[in-house]
Design a protein around this nucleic acid. Structure first.
Length: 523
RNA sequence: GGCCCCGUCGUCUAGAGGUUAGGACACUGGCCUUUCAAGCCGGCAGCACGGGUUCGAUUCCCGUCGGGGUCACCA
């Protein structure tokens, strides 16, 4: 039997990190078994613009390298892959359930049901619908219609016995039928509800393994009832541990996006990301630019595989020491058996470390490919850069080394190289330049640079150290001032790298400007 | 509240009767150093609790406590 798994997001306008993890595990399981990974769009909630809300989800999955064999854009033998377009199949299933007595038309009014529910509550008992408005016969039906009632279709759930499903992550789980409600499967307006639709679609798409988040575990009995009543073979279920908020066990919720933007655990990557976004003129909105949404990472310049590798480790592990996997390794090593059953909290700092690892390992070509667009969007490099500019950028990337954690970091390290006059950090100027004697030291250094027979990192360093030694100072006393003088800031790549990349003319010019900021010599 | 799931360092985890309970991230002390980053060396920190079973339980069973999920004419 060929494995067929699916990820079935509803078009919400963004790709949630928890959703990605579910998609990833489905994808990995299918790829591992040489099976088929299907993307189905559960767009039963027709209110929103599907195209627009779907785009970010498809783009996000593709960016991460999670590709699907059947679904939107690629089609497949079981089209359509949009739940809303399969309504006729759902209705047919409802008819079949009605005909076989596994469902019934219910003419109760919402307030009548409420009354029953409240009565049960008051009595301290679990609510079990009386079915007194259930039309079990045509005669009942006609009578209720004559009363002017409208109806929904409900499942006629068993009230004795139990169901045991064998979950691939959790093992056997037993549910007493008595606790289940007569869930509505078709609304008064004739449209069908998610659970019915989902079961029918899974059957029609020949899904063999339903791999989804644990929040669906409680929904399984009603879905299993629908499937069994329809004569379907039950798929194998695997309920993944929830992805929880940082430092907590509470589900990472899509309804709390704006809270996460202010969450202290997220603040490091959120603030860092926001600085980058601002420099490229990105509008920062909580429902898209948010560390719980995949777009955030793309916009800030994370490497997609770093995200995937990190997410794979959330609830799954291969052994006691391996944590970095290539795509092929991850696919060959993945198994449902190694999935943990307890919730895993999302740790932004660990993600950051994984990203750091992959950025270090990236080749120069890869780094340039991801970083150049940031420089271009920030207006520091033209859209069609010359070979000279490209080589300058490459030097900057090289000199910056592993200070560049995400692609967007290039902005902070490259900006002063790419403009004529660096933006001077006023605090840095006060700290490093507005000190007695600095002006004359800079003057000396300027002079020796101008006279350097060979402009190289080594000669730059030697001449600086000579000046410092002559003045009876330590290197550190002067290096910081030079850095601020030429770059405008206190941090950056190695000083001699900076000077060398800037070139003699530019360095001299910058030192001249900086000297004007220093206090005049007292003698 | 009912039902279901879960419970090893702060976090992700290894462990599947006998281990000095291992690793990673984070945190932290020191060294190095022109900033930052990195690097090197070191440190802190965990089996929720109580009963069983057993010669022996982190590991198996029961209970307690704790956490989470779910109980819609949402998906």
């Amino acid at each position: 039997m060929t494995v067929r798994t699916r990820f079935a997001p509803s078009p919400t306008g963004y790709l949630h990190i928890g959703g990605v993890r579910t998609a990833l595990f489905n994808w990995l399981f299918a790829r591992h078994h040489g099976g088929t990974f299907i993307l189905r769009i559960d767009d039963t909630d027709t209110a929103r613009n599907v195209d627009e809300a779907l785009q970010p989800i498809l783009d996000g999955l593709l960016w991460l390298g999670i590709d699907w064999d059947e679904g939107p854009r690629v089609g497949g033998p079981h089209e359509p892959y949009f739940q809303s377009q399969r309504a006729d199949r759902h209705c047919l299933a409802v008819e079949a359930l009605l005909a076989s007595g596994h469902a019934y038309r219910d003419f109760s009014r919402p307030e009548e049901l409420d009354l029953e529910r409240k009565a049960a509550q008051a009595a301290g008992a679990a609510f079990i619908y009386s079915r007194r408005f259930a039309a079990m016969t045509d005669a009942d039906c006609n009578r209720f219609i004559a009363e002017g009632r409208s109806s929904v279709v409900r499942l006629k759930m068993p009230r004795t016995g139990s169901l045991t499903i064998v979950d691939l992550v959790r093992g056997p789980v037993e549910f007493a039928w008595q606790r289940e409600q007569d869930h509505v499967i078709q609304r008064a307006n004739g449209s069908c509800l998610y659970h019915l639709a989902s079961v029918v679609d899974d059957q029609d798409l020949a899904i063999t393994h339903v791999i989804r988040a644990e929040e669906h575990l409680s929904n399984t009995p009603r879905q299993a009832f629908i499937a069994m009543s329809l004569g379907y073979k039950l798929p194998t279920y695997a309920h993944l541990p929830l992805v929880a908020e940082p430092g907590s066990r509470t589900k990472l919720s899509k309804r709390k996006l704006s809270q996460y933007l202010k969450n202290a655990d997220f603040s490091q990557i959120t603030d860092h990301g926001t600085r980058i976004a601002e420099r490229v003129g990105l509008t920062v909105q909580s429902d898209t630019f948010n560390p719980v949404v995949v777009d955030f990472y793309r916009e800030v310049g994370y490497l997609p595989w770093a995200i995937v590798n990190y997410l794979a480790l959330l609830g799954w592990s291969y052994d006691d020491h391996t944590e970095f996997f290539s795509r092929d390794e991850l696919i060959s090593r993945f198994s449902l058996e190694k999935i943990n059953s307890s919730p895993a909290s999302f740790d932004p700092k660990k993600l950051w470390a994984v990203q750091d690892h992959y950025m270090r390992g990236a080749t120069m070509a890869e780094k340039l490919a991801v970083m150049l667009p940031f420089l271009q969007r920030a207006g520091l490099v033209p859209s069609s850069p010359t070979a000279e500019t490209l080589s300058l950028v490459q030097s900057i990337v090289e000199a910056s080394g592993d200070r560049l954690k995400v692609a967007g970091d290039i902005l902070a390290y490259a900006d002063f190289f790419l403009v004529d006059h660096p933006l001077m950090d006023q605090a840095a100027v006060r700290l490093r330049l507005e000190k007695p004697g600095i002006g004359s030291l800079l003057g000396s250094y300027r002079k020796s640079i101008a006279e350097l027979s060979e402009f190289s990192k080594i000669s730059l360093e030697e001449s600086l150290k000579k000046i410092v030694a002559d003045a009876g100072l330590k290197t550190g006393d002067f290096v910081h001032a030079v850095r601020v003088a030429v770059t405008g800031k206190t941090v950056g790549p190695g000083l001699y790298d900076c000077l060398f990349i800037l070139g003699r003319e530019s360095v001299l010019r910058r030192i001249d400007s900086a000297i004007k900021l220093c206090p005049p010599a007292t003698t």
